[in-house]
Simulated assay, not measured.
Amino acid sequence: MANPYTKHRIRKITRRFGIRALRSGTVASFYRENAIIQVQTKMGTYALKPFFRNALLRTSTVHQMKTTAAYLELLMNSGFTYMPKWLTTRSGKLWTLHRERPFYMTEWIKGRNLEKNEDFEELGRALATLHTTSSGILDTKGPSTHNQIRIWKIQDRLFRRRMNKAIQNHERNRKWYKIYGKYCKRLTDRAWANLNSPEVVDLLKKEANRPALIHNDITSPNVIISENGQLFIIDWDRVKVGSIYVDLAKALMNTTQFNPDFILALLKGYEERRPLDQTERKLISSLYGLPREAWHATQFPHESRSREMLDILKKTWDPRLKAMDLIDEWTKSIPKEIEVVNEITD
């Protein structure tokens, strides 16, 4: 596929942000070939990013870009420091429209990936800061954990139907289903039981009155430790009002590689700024245990990526189970001082 971002087009867009591009080149992501344009100038290096519509939402691309920019302005005005500096256009906006596609620019963060316990502690602090900062500045209610659970229950039902059909008709992935499908069913059955417990149901009702912004895509490539040691979270295209518990559970799954030290470090950093009571821990543990990768991998069984994802699941199955046991133990080992604080606040 030809690169759609010619030098002329890039220079025309960057000029709107007061930037004169000297050199530029595209960088691929896991999902897109030309995901980011790296722009070099006399003043430094910047990231020019096209904004793509979230197909799960019914709103237009421009509406989604406006909403994203509004959330980011709230965070910047509240002093949130864990994201790159966003550039403004000459008209003062955080984005511009070119050929019906929104674009935005940020500083380019050069650095390394998450490597040490200290990195994961800082990621935990960054997430907790995002969740607590935004909960005090929003004046709207948004989708909560309950909404996400409803979607995941639909995915679980579809997974079970595909599994039964594949086993009966000797379809592709039949062997994988026969070995691991029953374990996926056990994991989800246990999670649904925990999520239906009275204390968790009560927590989810209260959550609706405490809206917060979530990044919604915390993965290893989206977290960078800069050359001066500062942690940055990048790629804020999917920021939204949502469940902080889902955000944390997905971050644990997508960054720690099932490493016990990294898992505990991330949770430690998070609780330094936002302590979690036993019910919240139980909720996070239940969400972490859901086999979401299996649901996605089996959705399109004839695609090569599906086979690759199932192979990864097979290779990492034992570490996954051990990580789930670790988080279960963490759920039960809540410090006394947190219990006292929660009793006072209740």
Rank of each mutant, 00 (worst) to 15 (best):
A2S: 10
I10Q: 04
I13A: 04
I13D: 05
G25A: 05
T26L: 10
E33G: 11
N34L: 02
A35T: 00
Q38L: 14
Q40N: 08
Y46C: 06
L57I: 03
T59C: 11
V62D: 07
L72E: 00
F80I: 06
Y82I: 02
W86Q: 02
W86E: 00
T89F: 00
G92N: 03
T96A: 09
R99K: 05
E100G: 00
K110N: 07
L114D: 02
D119I: 05
T129L: 11
T129I: 01
H131R: 08
T133K: 03
L138W: 02
N147P: 01
I149F: 05
K153R: 15
R157Y: 06
L158W: 13
M163F: 03
N173M: 12
T188P: 00
N196D: 00
A212E: 01
L213D: 00
D217H: 09
P221R: 08
S226F: 09
E227V: 08
I234H: 05
I244M: 10
I244P: 12
Y245E: 05
A249M: 09
N254M: 08
N254S: 09
T255S: 12
Q257V: 01
G269R: 02
R274L: 07
R274M: 11
T279M: 10
S285D: 13
S286I: 04
L287N: 07
E303Q: 11
D311K: 15
K315N: 15
L321S: 06
M324D: 07
D325E: 14
D328Q: 14
E337H: 13
I338C: 12
V341K: 03
